[in-house]
């Protein structure tokens, strides 16, 4: 596959699966304000998905639409980072997953604002404003709930322990990113990793949370290797279009 298409799918799939997981909280969050906030982030992510898929579909040139990409690919064809497919165990997991994602997403979008590829640069310049707001919110909650009650601290630490190994998948790179960097499509992604490390170190310390020390990392999503939750997410998300493949909605 064209490296540009692969990269756009990695970004779009990650946004879509997180949007899907985030949106599921609507009506079930701990307070009304969180129902609204999670819906809002879900909307931003689904909007970003559409933009990534448009660039991917255009570059691919096979006449596929963004909806074809979302609803008619299988688990092994999805290239999202494993972090975003981790389940909605509880609201602590949902918040921590969002925060770790945001801590990578903001420097990534900032870097992409300098992309030599015009549509990607345009996408990033639009998205970065939304992403800045997302991390302001999620960082604030990580600090308040980490440095909150004993119970809230334990919940947030539990979520961090469970999810930290998957953060590595957000930053996993291979030949695709290398090729695109040589072409000037992607800027140096090392600085994204450095920004992520600095952001999480400072915030988690303020939150009195400890980063797991075993250095254990889980990767594979970028080449279509997922966790067992992924198949269920797609089964649910794709159920209607796949039941009526000739229909338009």
């Amino acid at each position: 596959m064209d490296p540009l298409v692969t990269f756009c799918l990695r970004m779009g799939d990650t946004a879509l699966i997180l949007g899907q997981q985030t949106a599921a909280w609507c009506g079930h969050a701990p307070v009304l304000e969180e129902d609204i906030a999670f819906a809002n982030m879900g909307l931003d992510l689904i909007g970003q998905t559409q933009l990534w898929y448009e660039i991917a579909a255009e570059a691919e040139g096979k006449g596929r639409t963004p909806d074809d990409l979302a609803f008619f690919r299988t688990e092994r064809q999805f290239l999202n980072a494993q972090l975003v497919e981790r389940p909605n165990v509880d609201f602590a997991h949902a918040l921590m997953r969002q925060y770790l994602f945001d801590a990578w997403h903001l420097p990534m979008q900032e870097a992409l604002c300098e992309s030599g590829h015009e549509p990607i640069r345009g996408l990033a310049q639009k998205s970065v404003k939304e992403v800045r707001y997302h991390i302001d919110r999620s960082r604030d909650l990580i600090v308040r709930l980490g440095d909150g009650s004993e119970e809230s601290r334990a919940k947030m630490q539990g979520a961090l322990d469970a999810l930290w190994p998957y953060a590595a998948d957000l930053m996993a790179t291979d030949e695709v990113e290398k090729t695109l960097a040589e072409q000037g499509v992607l800027p140096d992604l090392h600085r994204v990793r450095r920004a992520f490390d600095a952001e999480t170190a400072a915030t988690l310390e303020r939150a009195t949370l400890a980063i797991p020390e075993n250095g254990h990392a889980r990767t594979g999503g970028r080449s279509g290797i997922h966790t067992e939750t992924m198949g269920y997410i797609l089964a649910e998300m794709q159920s209607v279009p796949r039941s009526y493949p000739d229909a338009r909605w």
Partner: peptide
Amino acid sequence: ITRAPSLQRKAILLAKVQDEAGHGL
């Protein structure tokens, strides 16, 4: 919301349910 059949319909439905939470507020 998790089963809306297109990205566009998913976004519209999500925005709608969000509006309802806002009305409640």
